[in-house]
C-alpha cells in the first residue's frame, strides 16, 4: 500500500516540478491582471474571485480592458466567450488520455485545463510510455502528473492575482500600469502572426475595431472579431485553392 501512495504522490510532485518553470511567465500576467482590475474599478474581492471562476489569463485581461473602456456585459461575455473557445481544442486533444477516468477526475482536470497546464501535461502523455508511470498492479497514474501541473499553475495564478491586487492598491495611477494590458496583447499577437491566415484575421479585426468604434457598449469589438474570423477562414480556403490549382 505504501508503494502505491508513493507513486501517485510522486507523479503529482513531478507534475508540480514540470509546471514550475512556466510560472515565471505566468506570475507577471497575474500581477498585471490584478493591477489593471483595480485600475478599472473592479473591487479586489471580485477580481480575486474571477481568477478562481474564470481561471483563464487572456480572457481575464480582456474583461478588465473592456470594463476600463466602458463596455457592456453582453459584448464582454461574447468576446471572452469567443477567446476561450480554444479550450475545446485542448479538451479534444486530452480526450484520448483521460476518457477512462472516473467523472470526478475529469471534472477536476477540466477545471485545471489551461494553456500552460495543457502544454506540460500533453508532453507527459505523449513522450513517456504509460508503463513508466504504472503501479505494480498496472494502473496508469499520469493523471496525477496532470493534476500536479494544473494545481501548481492554479496556485501561482491565485497568488500572483493577490500580489497584483496588494501592489496595485499602493501605486499611483500616474504610473499607467494599466497600459501593460494592451502591451501584453501586442506581445501575444506578434507570436501568433507567423501564418498568413492569422495575419489576415488580425488585420481585418484591427481595422474593424476602428470602423465599428461608434457602436454602443463596445459591440463593435465583437463585430470586428467575427469579421476577422471570416477573413482568416477565407484566406485559408483561398490558399488551399491556389495550392490545388498549381498542383493540377
Amino acid at each position: 500500500m505504501a508503494g502505491k501512495a508513493t507513486s501517485a504522490s510522486g507523479e503529482f510532485l513531478a507534475g508540480c516540478r514540470g509546471e514550475a518553470p512556466l510560472l515565471l511567465g505566468v506570475i507577471p500576467f497575474g500581477m498585471i491582471y490584478g493591477i489593471a482590475a483595480l485600475a478599472a474599478g473592479v473591487p479586489a474581492w471580485v477580481a480575486q474571485l474571477a481568477s478562481a471562476m474564470v481561471f483563464a489569463g487572456a480572457a481575464q485581461l480582456v474583461i478588465v480592458q473592456m470594463l476600463a473602456a466602458g463596455a457592456g456585459a453582453l459584448p464582454i461575455a461574447l468576446t471572452s466567450g469567443l477567446l476561450n473557445l480554444r479550450h475545446v481544442l485542448y479538451s479534444a486533444s486530452m480526450a484520448e488520455y483521460v476518457r477512462h477516468l472516473p467523472r470526478r477526475w475529469r471534472l477536476l482536470l477540466a477545471y485545471l485545463l489551461t494553456d500552460e497546464a495543457y502544454a506540460v501535461a500533453v508532453l507527459r502523455y505523449q513522450r513517456h510510455a504509460a508503463d513508466t508511470a504504472q503501479r505494480d498492479d498496472g494502473a496508469d497514474l499520469r493523471h496525477w502528473y496532470f493534476f500536479g501541473a494544473g494545481f501548481t499553475l492554479w496556485a501561482g495564478w491565485q497568488l500572483s492575482t493577490a500580489a497584483g491586487l496588494l501592489f496595485g492598491a499602493t501605486i499611483p495611477a500616474e504610473w499607467e500600469l494599466d497600459f501593460a494590458v494592451p502591451l501584453t496583447f501586442i506581445a501575444l499577437l506578434t507570436l501568433l502572426l507567423r501564418e498568413r491566415a492569422g495575419r489576415a484575421a488580425a488585420l481585418v479585426a484591427g481595422l474593424g475595431a476602428l470602423a465599428f468604434a461608434g457602436l454602443p457598449y463596445k459591440l463593435g469589438l465583437v463585430a470586428a472579431i467575427l469579421l476577422g474570423l471570416l477573413a482568416g477562414v477565407w484566406t485559408v480556403r483561398r490558399l488551399e485553392r491556389v495550392k490545388q490549382e498549381s498542383a493540377a
Binding site: 480582456v62 473592456m66 475545446v88 488580425a202 484591427g206 463593435g220 476577422g228 474570423l229 482568416g232
Partner: peptide, 20 residues
Amino acid sequence: LCRHIAPASFAALTASALFV
C-alpha cells in the same frame, strides 16, 4: 475557426485600446 480566434481578438482589442 479556433486558430483565428486569438489573433483576431488581440488585434481588435489592441487597435481599440490605442485608438478608440
